[in-house]
Measured scan of single mutants.
Amino acid sequence: TFVALYDYESRTETDLSFKKGERLQIVNNTEGDWWLAHSLTTGQTGYIPSNYVAP
């Protein structure tokens, strides 16, 4: 799992909003700078900017 370093507000319907400190499970990280992730807090799935999270 990864932890959010910053808050992120989604800009498209495929993005995932999250708050700093939220735990995220990475589903697919082969898309370059945008990873498909599942929030362990909200249960939602969407794309996140990879530079906003850390292991």
Score class of each variant (00 low, 15 high):
residue 41 T to A: 13
residue 25 Q to C: 15
residue 51 N to C: 15
residue 47 Y to S: 04
residue 13 E to H: 10
residue 45 T to K: 08
residue 22 E to F: 01
residue 16 L to A: 05
residue 33 D to G: 13
residue 31 E to N: 15
residue 14 T to M: 12
residue 39 S to D: 04
residue 18 F to P: 01
residue 38 H to W: 09
residue 15 D to F: 09
residue 26 I to T: 03
residue 21 G to Y: 04
residue 53 V to S: 02
residue 26 I to Q: 03
residue 27 V to R: 07
residue 3 V to H: 06
residue 34 W to L: 09
residue 45 T to M: 12
residue 29 N to A: 15
residue 34 W to N: 06
residue 3 V to D: 06
residue 31 E to R: 13
residue 22 E to M: 04
residue 50 S to T: 06
residue 8 Y to G: 01
residue 14 T to V: 12
residue 19 K to T: 07
residue 54 A to S: 12
residue 21 G to N: 06
residue 31 E to P: 08
residue 14 T to G: 15
residue 41 T to P: 03
residue 27 V to M: 14
residue 26 I to N: 03
residue 14 T to K: 13
residue 27 V to H: 08
residue 25 Q to W: 13
residue 6 Y to D: 08
residue 46 G to Q: 00
residue 35 W to N: 02
residue 39 S to T: 02
residue 39 S to H: 11
residue 39 S to N: 14
residue 9 E to Y: 10
residue 32 G to D: 12
residue 46 G to W: 00
residue 26 I to K: 06
residue 20 K to P: 02
residue 49 P to D: 07
residue 38 H to R: 15
residue 15 D to Y: 09
residue 18 F to M: 08
residue 45 T to D: 07
residue 53 V to A: 05
residue 42 T to G: 04
residue 6 Y to E: 09
residue 34 W to M: 13
residue 44 Q to M: 14
residue 5 L to M: 09
residue 19 K to S: 09
residue 10 S to R: 08
residue 19 K to W: 03
residue 25 Q to K: 13
residue 17 S to L: 03
residue 2 F to K: 02
residue 4 A to G: 06
residue 50 S to P: 12
residue 43 G to T: 03
residue 3 V to T: 09
residue 49 P to W: 05
residue 49 P to A: 04
residue 8 Y to A: 01
residue 23 R to Y: 15
residue 3 V to G: 02
residue 14 T to Q: 12
residue 25 Q to M: 14
residue 39 S to V: 03
residue 15 D to W: 06
residue 20 K to R: 10
residue 28 N to T: 10
residue 8 Y to V: 02
residue 3 V to Y: 10
residue 14 T to E: 11
residue 25 Q to F: 15
residue 30 T to R: 10
residue 39 S to Q: 05
residue 32 G to W: 09
residue 46 G to E: 00
residue 23 R to P: 08
residue 30 T to K: 12
residue 29 N to R: 14
residue 11 R to K: 14
residue 46 G to H: 01
residue 40 L to R: 05
residue 55 P to H: 09
residue 47 Y to K: 06
residue 38 H to F: 15
residue 7 D to H: 04
residue 26 I to F: 04
residue 17 S to C: 08
residue 17 S to W: 04
residue 47 Y to T: 05
residue 6 Y to L: 10
residue 36 L to G: 01
residue 13 E to R: 08
residue 25 Q to R: 15
residue 38 H to A: 09
residue 7 D to R: 02
residue 54 A to N: 07
residue 11 R to S: 13
residue 30 T to D: 13
residue 53 V to D: 03
residue 37 A to T: 02
residue 10 S to Q: 07
residue 28 N to F: 09
residue 27 V to L: 15
residue 32 G to L: 11
residue 55 P to N: 08
residue 7 D to L: 01
residue 6 Y to N: 06
residue 34 W to T: 07
residue 47 Y to V: 05
residue 1 T to G: 07
residue 29 N to D: 14
residue 46 G to Y: 00
residue 13 E to M: 10
residue 28 N to H: 09
residue 14 T to N: 14
residue 28 N to L: 10
residue 24 L to C: 01
residue 19 K to R: 11
residue 12 T to W: 13
residue 28 N to S: 14
residue 8 Y to F: 10
residue 55 P to K: 08
residue 30 T to Y: 10
residue 8 Y to L: 03
residue 23 R to T: 14
residue 25 Q to I: 15
residue 4 A to K: 00
residue 40 L to F: 09
residue 48 I to G: 01
residue 41 T to L: 13
residue 14 T to S: 13
residue 49 P to Q: 06
residue 55 P to Q: 10
residue 22 E to K: 00
residue 42 T to Q: 04
residue 11 R to Q: 14
residue 6 Y to M: 12
residue 52 Y to Q: 06
residue 3 V to I: 15
residue 3 V to A: 04
residue 2 F to C: 09
residue 42 T to F: 02
residue 25 Q to L: 15
residue 21 G to C: 07
residue 51 N to H: 13
residue 34 W to C: 09
residue 15 D to A: 07
residue 5 L to A: 04
residue 32 G to I: 11
residue 12 T to F: 14
residue 27 V to S: 07
residue 2 F to Y: 15
residue 15 D to G: 14
residue 48 I to T: 01
residue 4 A to E: 01
residue 15 D to V: 08
residue 6 Y to H: 09
residue 39 S to P: 00
residue 43 G to Y: 05
residue 7 D to W: 03
residue 43 G to F: 07
residue 26 I to G: 02
residue 36 L to Y: 12
residue 16 L to H: 02
residue 21 G to H: 05
residue 55 P to F: 08
residue 43 G to A: 05
residue 24 L to P: 00
residue 11 R to W: 09
residue 47 Y to C: 11
residue 28 N to R: 09
residue 44 Q to W: 07
residue 25 Q to P: 00
residue 25 Q to N: 09
residue 35 W to D: 01
residue 33 D to E: 13
residue 45 T to Q: 09
residue 52 Y to K: 07
residue 4 A to D: 01
residue 26 I to C: 05
residue 2 F to T: 04
residue 21 G to Q: 02
residue 25 Q to H: 13
residue 10 S to N: 05
residue 49 P to V: 01
residue 46 G to P: 00
residue 5 L to T: 04
residue 26 I to Y: 02
residue 54 A to Y: 10
residue 26 I to M: 06
residue 42 T to H: 02
residue 52 Y to E: 03
residue 43 G to N: 09
residue 40 L to A: 07
residue 16 L to F: 11
residue 45 T to F: 10
residue 35 W to Y: 06
residue 44 Q to F: 09
residue 1 T to K: 06
residue 46 G to I: 01
residue 1 T to C: 14
residue 21 G to D: 06
residue 9 E to V: 13
residue 11 R to D: 12
residue 51 N to F: 10
residue 55 P to S: 10
residue 52 Y to C: 11
residue 43 G to S: 06
residue 37 A to F: 02
residue 20 K to F: 05
residue 55 P to D: 09
residue 52 Y to A: 15
residue 3 V to K: 04
residue 16 L to Y: 05
residue 41 T to N: 11
residue 12 T to K: 13
residue 54 A to R: 10
residue 29 N to K: 14
residue 14 T to R: 14
residue 4 A to W: 01
residue 36 L to V: 08
residue 15 D to C: 11
residue 25 Q to Y: 14
residue 7 D to K: 03
residue 19 K to I: 07
residue 46 G to M: 01
residue 22 E to A: 04
residue 40 L to V: 08
residue 16 L to I: 12
residue 53 V to M: 06
residue 41 T to H: 11
residue 49 P to K: 07
residue 50 S to I: 06
residue 13 E to C: 13
residue 10 S to F: 03
residue 22 E to P: 00
residue 47 Y to F: 12
residue 45 T to S: 10
residue 28 N to G: 15
residue 8 Y to H: 06
residue 42 T to V: 01
residue 43 G to P: 01
residue 51 N to K: 13
